[in-house]
């Protein structure tokens, strides 16, 4: 049973998140379980707190990180192994994740999302009254 599913990027993405001219990359993620729920970590090199958007709509959590290049404009690219582009990925959260309590932290280009489990309600005994 998985409480969180990654959805392949289907177009169209929300209009506000689109940047037509730049390349969009899918960031690699880890998801692991701890005592309180799930933790999601995503590699977003070049993304700062100001350029990261996290959006929850219905069950869908979308992360969008805008990357601004640190290289001067007149620099000439002479060797390339990666593309500088914005990061986009979305996930479907199940009902077992407490959407209200989700918290996020970004450091050194790594986003850490804490997704606590919904606390199960205790079974309640129903008293039966005899006639």
């Amino acid at each position: 049973m998985s409480e969180i599913k990654s959805t392949p990027e289907r177009r169209p993405t929300p209009a506000s998140l689109r940047t037509p001219s730049k390349r969009v990359c899918t960031p690699p993620i880890d998801i692991y379980e701890d005592q309180d729920g799930l933790v999601l970590r995503a590699d977003l090199p070049g993304v700062s707190v100001d350029t990261l958007e996290l959006q929850v709509q219905d069950n869908k959590l979308t992360l969008f990180g805008r990357v601004s290049t640190s290289v001067p404009k007149d620099a000439k690219l002479i060797y390339q192994e990666y593309h500088v582009g914005d990061f986009l990925r979305s996930f479907i959260l199940s009902d077992q994740v407490n959407h209200e309590q989700t918290s996020a932290k970004l450091s050194e280009g790594v986003l850490e999302l804490t997704l606590p489990r919904v606390t199960q309600s205790e079974p309640r005994r129903i008293p039966i009254r005899g006639e």
Binding site: D43, A75, Y82
Partner: peptide
């Protein structure tokens, strides 16, 4: 899977040339 780097060298590196220097950038999140 674009952007999920499998089978590639880590970290990926770009090299830029400027008039008086080269810039080597590498993505090393975390």
């Amino acid at each position: 899977m674009d952007g999920v780097r499998i089978g590639r060298q880590y970290p990926p590196v770009n090299i830029y040339e400027l008039e008086d220097e080269f810039l080597l950038t590498a993505e090393v999140p975390g």
